[in-house]
Amino acid sequence: MTIRPEPPVAPLLAAARRLWEDLAGVPASFPPAAGAVNVVVSPESDLCPAGWVGIVTLGGSALVTAPDEHTAETVRQALRGLPVEALADAAAVRDALPVTALLGPAALAYVSPENFRPAEASSQVERADGHHPAVRALERTAGPEDAAEAALDEITSPAFVLREHGDPGDPGDAVAAAGYRSWPRRTAHLSVLTAPAARGRGCARTVASAAVAHALAAGLLPQWRARPPASRRVAAALGFEELGAQLSVELAQDRRGVTLPPS
């Protein structure tokens, strides 16, 4: 029997996989074969909240972390036979496992310097500290849910802020801001937020473009993690390629802490 070697992994996909393998918290890797799933035990996994099951799909295979061996075996049995794309489908995962809470799925997208399509530079984009009052005011305008999703309060880069100018001498209110947080493997995790009244006008693309350009100039790998279709469209317009998804799942347990089987 002739054994065919696995095709080489594209550099962008390889870099993304190395990042999430590090975040798994234990020595683990994405299976090289398309459609394969690797479930490992990792109580300290950063793929999900503590005690949850973390699922990351990238390039047609999946890496899954579970907090203990019993849960890991439950997950292995439940997911056996499911196509990898179903692991990024909340409904399919709910059908297979006794889910009590779920975060995601969120698309994972990345861009290389060669594929980056920057927005037209705007002289109105200001570079500010991530804790600038204008950024905090934008978060209040956007509301707590959107502000928490963007997590601009966690960025380690400068904030790139777009304002709508008011009267002469008045800098005006911030209508969009972006930055990134330094992640392992020299990854720049993007944060982008736009005021509700300013959405659909290209503001997010303008500030995100400035943040991505800053990350690429520093030799970092920009990562865009998003659930809303509008955010994913902004990423695509800048040249990001969706390579997979992340889903975090909390499973039901009985009083002894044993994971319940699917009903």
Rank of each mutant, 00 (worst) to 15 (best):
N38L: 10
E69D: 14
W52I: 01
T57G: 06
N38S: 15
L23M: 09
V135C: 08
D46I: 01
R127Y: 06
T141Q: 14
P49D: 00
R17P: 02
P31W: 04
G81F: 15
T57I: 11
A128S: 12
H131C: 11
D46E: 15
Q124S: 08
I55D: 00
R136C: 05
L19D: 03
V93N: 09
A36V: 01
G130H: 11
A151F: 12
S112I: 07
V125K: 06
G104M: 10
Q124K: 13
A101K: 12
S45L: 06
T65G: 00
R17L: 12
H70G: 06
A24N: 01
L12W: 14
E73A: 05
L152S: 10
V75M: 07
V84E: 08
W20L: 05
N115I: 05
V99K: 03
A151H: 04
F116Q: 14
V75N: 05
S112G: 13
F30I: 10
G81Q: 12
G60E: 01
R17C: 08
A78K: 11
T74P: 03
A134Y: 02
A86D: 15
A109D: 08
D146L: 01
A119P: 08
S29W: 07
Q77F: 14
R127A: 13
L138F: 07
L152R: 10
A137T: 06
P105N: 12
V40M: 10
A142P: 04
L103T: 11
P31R: 11
P31G: 06
V37H: 01
G130E: 13
L87K: 09
H70N: 04
E44L: 02
V125H: 07
A86S: 15
A33G: 11
D68L: 03
P83G: 13
